[in-house]
Amino acid sequence: MVKHIIPDTLSEALKYLYQGDFQVFAGGTDLMVQNRSWSETSIEFTKNMLYCFNLQELKGITAIDGRIEIGAMTPLETIMNHPDVPSLLSEAIGEMASPAIRHIATLAGNIGNASPAGDSLPVLILYDAWVELRNMAGFRMILLKDLIIGPRKTVMHPEEMIVKIVIPKHRFDFERFVKVGGRKADAISKVSFAGAVDIEDGKIADLRLTFGAVGKTVVRNETVEGAWIGMTISELKNGIWRLIDMYDPLILPIDDQRSNKHYRKTVAINLLRDFVDQL
């Protein structure tokens, strides 16, 4: 018999996680769909469920010491409208699902779900976001890009849960997020892109590029990005074909019911080129 637990405190939740195999339920907007059943019947989860909606300590956003900390149970809509949240993240959330979903869905859920098409992921990874994981014994911080290792796969241990997302505060000189969905709202990404640049004394001081829905996880490569540090924007523009060549082997999309790999790959490259063109 599957257990359904609604803890009131984080420590209680962690105790359950320690004791048995539980599926953590944040907003539930993906879990409910993945486990859908005949209407008016209760969903038949195959794992024990730990519902986190009463964990007040996981709700809220704080800005401290050059970083933003977002509690795991903070709804997307709250995050989107928060003044300290990086603009690119607000923009990405604004294109996720529909307002109703955004009022209950969470960033932690988008991360834990680890879908290659998760719309917050390219932006969070671009910002070098960290995830704080907790268990009974303590906590560890892990870079988001190291947390997700494949479609629906993370390196989280069964007794761990995401308690917050930590985003280093940074204002880029130029940044952009583009989601390409099947329509203008309420769609799952066919491909997405985020890019950001800092320029100091006419030279590239920081360059970050991420691609969503074109591989098993978000595509980001710091070696490729690093190769352009210290160069000028016009050198980057002139080297666009070299840049594209560097990403070409990294962008490996699939065919599915939403799009095909040729389109996904071409658009990902187009988005990269367009980003550089606009600099």
Binding site: R183, K184, A185, D186, I188, R258
Partner: peptide
């Protein structure tokens, strides 16, 4: 209705 795309008001 996730995969069969019909227009929303924005479309």
């Amino acid at each position: 209705m996730t995969d069969y795309i019909i227009p929303t008001a924005l479309d």
